[in-house]
Design a protein around this nucleic acid. Structure first.
Lengths: 233, 233
DNA sequence: CCCACAACATGACAATTGTCAAGTTGAGAA
DNA sequence: TTCTCAACTTGACAATTGTCATGTTGTGGG
């Protein structure tokens, strides 16, 4: 991908898209561009934050390791997503680790650049706050899912988010591997397999990384139904 | 409680404590003080945010209602905690509802005051960002708990957070009712009861709202152990 | 004082999920 | 091509959790 095309993607990110052009150019001109291989670490939990990150291509996961070695996936980001905004302004350690889950292009905006620009124009603080709030909101939504839905329902919602909001049927490609989907939804890969089997009953067929949804409305109804009511298999 | 004592508590909140005195006084002088009864609603999901809230006394829960009426508790705040910072600067709807779970005193700082003050001094933006980041961090920690620990382990961690970091034994009072504790930890009240029973094996005795921990180190070891290893009841 | 009721505990049962142990399969390396 | 390995699936079983039913208890209102 050309450098210009990458810049265009960066400009659409939540962090940059509402900033005046002049500031965006300053930030882009100081940014560091890097490629990562699948499985490569971008940063580790407890490291001090030194940059804001913008994914230009590929997929990146944020996760936490528990003392026993289990990993909890916190979010998965792709083209046009930015993360680490809130930390860049304060010299604090990352609460999560970041890893490329596919080959990736990632842009890094060094924190000092952002901080000095923010002193000139507080408007940048608002952009950072907006991005941070979006992340907060998505964590709240995730918590709600985990606390109030069964595994199969979370999978249903995951699939619905991949569709456009239409009604009727829909074909989607699973964006990353099933192990990661399972982690993202807080279950084991075996449970994910079983959840997919169960969704056959509401018109979902999965083959490899391809899913076929026969009726979006039906799937949505299933995702939002009361778990206790689905006693009938 | 006297008004002065309440102000002292507000001053210690994450939002205000790092601000210059002059700004703190401005905010306090424009704040609205209110009392709430147990069960009273402070704001509803989807309402537009008009203030930042600081709990001065009592307990407040933030929660989301699912389409089916199940409730997912997102956080529980008490004396000295502030919330809603990130929304106050932007005219967006609350992603959660807030309800007093005991009789409460809550201070409200109207957003326009905060916004106008921020235009004078961008430093306030940093304070807001710091508070928001703290909330983000606590949501990440909660996600990790839900995804990587069993119910009983989450209860163990909850109890550990009530103790000071000492070793040895410890007596604590449960801060709010068990129904709410269950909600906060993502389980049903019945499961919480069973979790408490199970913790008897690691030296925890619970009676009414009082818990007795015979060995903090032992409890911590249990909370952090691999769920799969606890095959021996 | 007594009553009603919500909070809590417990047992039985069903549903869900994790764990372990096979398989199968597909993509990349030799 | 063939080999190898990780990803994935499936089945059996155990542990966990939710649900429903029932009983106890403590508190606040009449």
């Amino acid at each position: 991908m050309s450098h210009e095309a990458q810049k265009a993607i960066a400009r659409q990110s939540l962090l940059l898209r509402s900033l005046p052009d002049q500031h965006v150019e300053t930030l882009l001109s100081h940014a560091i561009w890097r490629q990562y291989d699948r499985g490569e670490t971008i940063f580790l939990q407890e490291e001090k934050a030194q940059a804001v990150h913008v994914v230009l291509e590929g997929w990146v996961k944020l996760f936490r390791m528990t003392p026993t070695g289990a990993e909890a996936v916190v979010s998965v980001f792709t083209r046009g997503d930015s993360f680490g905004e809130a930390l860049a302004l304060r010299n604090v350690p990352y609460p999560v680790s970041a890893e490329a889950v596919s080959a990736c292009d990632v842009m890094h905006i060094p924190s000092p650049i952002l901080i000095s620009l923010m002193k000139e124009d507080p408007e940048i603080g608002i952009s950072i706050l907006a991005a941070t709030f979006t992340h907060l909101h998505s964590l709240v939504a995730q918590l709600e899912q985990l606390k109030a839905q069964t595994g199969a329902q979370r999978v249903a919602e995951f699939l619905l988010n991949l569709c456009d909001d239409e009604t009727g049927g829909c074909d989607v490609s699973l964006p990353y591997d099933k192990m990661l989907i399972a982690g993202r939804l807080g279950m084991k890969p075996e449970s994910l397999s079983r959840a997919f089997s169960r969704l056959k009953a509401v018109g979902v067929k999965v083959n490899r990384n391809h899913a076929e949804i026969s009726d979006i409305a039906l799937l949505r109804e299933y995702a939002e139904s009361d778990p206790a009511e689905n006693w009938s298999r």
